[in-house]
Amino acid sequence: MPTFRFRRAAAAVIAAVLPLSLAACGGGDENKIVIGTKFDQPGLANKNPDGTMSGFDVDVARYVADKLGYTPEQIEWKEAPSGQRETLIQNGQVDYIVATYSITDARKEKVDFAGPYLLTGQSLLVRADNTDITGKDSLENNKVLCSVTGSTPAQKIKDEFPGVQLQQYDTYSACVEALKNNAVDALTTDEVILAGYAAQTPGAFKIVGEPFSEERYGIGLKQGDDELRGKINDALEQMLSDGAWQDAFEQNLGPAGIATPTPPAVDRY
């Protein structure tokens, strides 16, 4: 069992030797690790009807947990909506987060990151019969664009496309429903996320235009926990070198029509 993260069952011991936030994180169970991820992103991190978790992010999170000494049965999954990720980490409610979490300078002021473990870019999803949205340059004609509160794509639209009507929801699945129901004209987020939704409902949606950003997905953790960050980076480097990363990508995102990219180099900043 890893030495960096202990949980004690007895409340008195918790109070004596552990910060309150860490005790809350594991619920007093020393044989558990709490991992934050999305619950509604097919191909990346999805909570299935039977309660199991699946997706590329989930496989990355499981691989890292295994290298930290935890079995799949010892993982507690916690939903981590985009707007709540920093709070979940800072309050000690999770040990780390693997949730399409772009590494940015602003976020690094609040949390630390291991990785990156995937590079992608922001793109657009429209209904399959749409003909007037062909990419980012066709957005500013009174189009209503949906994204998620607290996400990097939403902030990019605010900063670089002020003429776009931006509708924000808490989850991308809510944006997909709004797009399906003609409440919005397009959904914007990272291409790998959009591909998962397109594959989930064949023939209903399509991705248009070229990606217009570069996003570096990292694993978020509490600021200053250099030991844990180092262990996670070690695990990611092993996953990238032993073929497990490529297998996970092809299994989860290959059916969406995305070619397996070259894995990124882990940044030991």
Rank of each mutant, 00 (worst) to 15 (best):
T3H: 15
S151Y: 09
Q155V: 00
W77R: 00
G224Y: 11
A114F: 08
S147L: 06
T260N: 15
A154Y: 03
F56T: 03
L20Y: 13
F113Y: 14
V34Q: 07
F113K: 05
Q251D: 10
A65F: 01
E215A: 13
R85T: 03
K158N: 12
L125P: 05
G209N: 02
L194Y: 06
I258V: 09
Q246I: 11
Q41A: 14
F249V: 04
A15K: 14
D105N: 13
A65R: 05
S173C: 02
N182S: 09
P202K: 08
D50P: 02
E73A: 14
A80C: 02
A248D: 08
A114N: 05
A183V: 01
L118D: 10
R85Y: 05
D29A: 01
G220L: 06
A198S: 13
D267N: 15
K38Y: 06
Q168M: 12
S151C: 02
I33Q: 03
T100K: 12
T189M: 05
V64C: 08
Y70E: 11
W245A: 05
Q122H: 04
D247L: 00
E191M: 12
Y70F: 15
G218T: 01
A248E: 12
K47R: 14
C175Y: 12
D112L: 04
V144Y: 04
G218Q: 07
D137Q: 10
A235F: 08
Q200W: 00
P153Q: 13
P264Y: 08
K110A: 14
W245D: 04
N91K: 11
S213C: 01
E79I: 00
A178Y: 07
T71G: 03
G230I: 00
V192I: 10
L253E: 05
G224K: 12
G28E: 06
P42I: 11
F6A: 08
T260H: 11
D105K: 15
N31Q: 10
Q200M: 10
Q155W: 09
E214T: 15
G209D: 04
L20E: 15
D159K: 14
G150D: 13
F6G: 00
N91T: 11
L145D: 04
G243N: 11
N252G: 03
V192C: 11
T188K: 07
T37W: 07
P162T: 08
L221C: 01
P116R: 13
A61S: 10
F249P: 02
Q155C: 00
D132N: 14
S213F: 01
E76N: 00
N233H: 10
A61M: 06
R107C: 03
V126N: 03
P116E: 14
Y70V: 02
G163T: 03
K110V: 07
R85N: 04
L68G: 02
I219D: 03
L88I: 02
Q122N: 15
G27D: 13
A10L: 09
K47H: 00
F56G: 11
I103D: 02
L166H: 02
I35D: 04
K136E: 12
L187F: 13
P261H: 07
A128P: 00
T104R: 15
